[in-house]
Design a protein around this nucleic acid. Structure first.
Lengths: 262, 262
DNA sequence: ACCTATTATTGACGAATCGTCACTGACGGA
DNA sequence: TCCGTCAGTGACGATTCGTCAATAATAGGT
């Protein structure tokens, strides 16, 4: 009267295996090249078993997306540990975002896909909740720094903005920049001459300067800071970048110079 | 020896009809609810004829997206005609973006979908070029104002940024904000309390203040400006908003107050 | 009026892929 | 040894995409 055991542990391991295999297929053949039969054939489980983990192909994609958000949250947390000013730590988090998008481009693009109703509508309730949790956690790592900087007096909350809005302005700006530039920028004439790293830090510096978040960009050497961050807390990520042959390309115009100092 | 006529004019009209019908299906049943057989049955043409216009379902979606970009470009142009300072005109263009996203949410979301490789990879070369052209045109309407403001002395180009980068910083920021908030914000806990219009103008004001683009946000009444724009150049759009029952919701914290004035 | 060359249109069909479900098999008690 | 339960299986039905051989439409030539 006691049937087979269902080991929570190995169940989770299997889900991980499925997600990893699916991602490797995507990396080889693109998102369009992934289908459930192909995944089935790449894995020692049957289709039915796969559908025990994910109730649709879309759910599987969202699952990959969740993994990515966890990676990203870890990177953000690590960025928050940098021993520097709050502004420098915010910059570190944006660098983390950039590194994530460059190191895991497929994961980042998947986030965009998941935003589209087509995908999201067909995602299981469980995983939707997971995304929410992860998003909250992610924004939380930013909020921590915002709070500290307000307490410090590094900047004063604008009259019509609260802490969450400040964190969101930062997030949406970096998201927009990376999203628009993470496709192959060469193929699009109007984006030619724009470099993802360069524009990201430009925009973020503008936002932070606009907030009056000290020290202003005119008072620090952003390019040097980024190099420092790369060699102090993102060592592993820098190596991964190099082994992928990706150049951060911040040598060009890297930061916005605040030259109006009114 | 003379076959049937292929009237360029009516061909274009038919394409328009197909695009409109497809969009209306999407509005009724969501993007997932659109399929080629359904479109065929809603239209007095056969599937083969539809495939003469669009070489895949994805191509059709991109086509709808292009229509939207044309609408958006027109709105941006109209915004550029506002008789005010360059900063006010930039604000007008961002308002145009917001109006577009609110009035044509499906079209805006489609832009996001088209960014994902799945869709874009399966789009015809012809339409990819169309998107590029439209993007260039769109960014051009922003560049015009940037150039004028530089000539005016309304702001000075930061040392490490060129005109294109300034225009792009504006574009990517508004894109990011709208993209992250145009889904139903209520369903996501971490975005609760954020209003799309509010955050958009917050972020843009931060960017423009960061650039030192005069007059600074502390020197103007952004909320009043928006009301003025709505009643002077976006009259039709305001009426459309009202008839859709959408509240712009700028009554809440509408703009960033620049209260650090160092 | 009729024929013909050319092109537009059609919709039935093949191919691909999704997701299900009736069956199989494995396991641990009785 | 038998039985009850549940995880796993993969063939199958259903859906939807995109094609293509057949058909219809047209206008000039005779």
């Amino acid at each position: 009267m006691s049937p087979r055991i269902l080991d929570e542990e190995s169940l989770h391991a299997r889900e991980l295996e499925l997600l990893d295999t699916a991602l490797s297929i995507i990396e080889k053949e693109g998102v369009a090249g992934l289908n459930m039969d192909k995944l089935t054939s790449c894995v020692p489980y049957s289709k039915g078993t796969i559908y025990n983990h994910f109730n649709s192909k879309e759910d599987l994609l969202t699952g990959i997306c969740c993994q990515g958000m966890r990676i990203l949250t870890d990177l953000f947390s690590k960025a928050g540990t940098f021993a520097g000013s709050t502004r420098e730590r915010i910059m570190a988090q944006n660098l983390a975002y950039l590194l994530y998008a460059l190191l895991y481009p497929n994961r980042f693009l998947l986030v965009i896909s998941v935003m589209s109703p087509t995908l999201f509508e067909r995602t299981s309730e469980r995983r939707r909740e997971e995304i929410q949790t992860l998003e909250t956690e992610l924004l939380g790592t930013v909020l921590t720094i915002v709070d500290e900087s307000i307490a410090n007096g590094d900047f004063t909350l604008p009259v019509h903005m609260n802490r969450k809005q400040v964190a969101f302005a930062n997030w949406s700006t970096s998201f927009g920049t990376i999203a628009l530039l993470s496709n192959d920028t060469e193929s699009c004439e109007c984006r030619r001459g724009l470099s993802i790293g360069c524009e990201l830090f430009n925009s973020i510096n503008l936002i932070l300067d606009g907030l009056g978040w000290k020290p202003l960009s005119s008072e620090i050497d952003s390019a040097a800071l980024i190099q420092q961050l790369l060699s102090e807390i993102f060592i592993k990520e820098r190596l991964m970048l190099e082994s992928k042959g990706i150049n951060l390309d911040l040598s060009a115009p890297a930061v916005a110079e605040k030259n109006h100092s009114k």
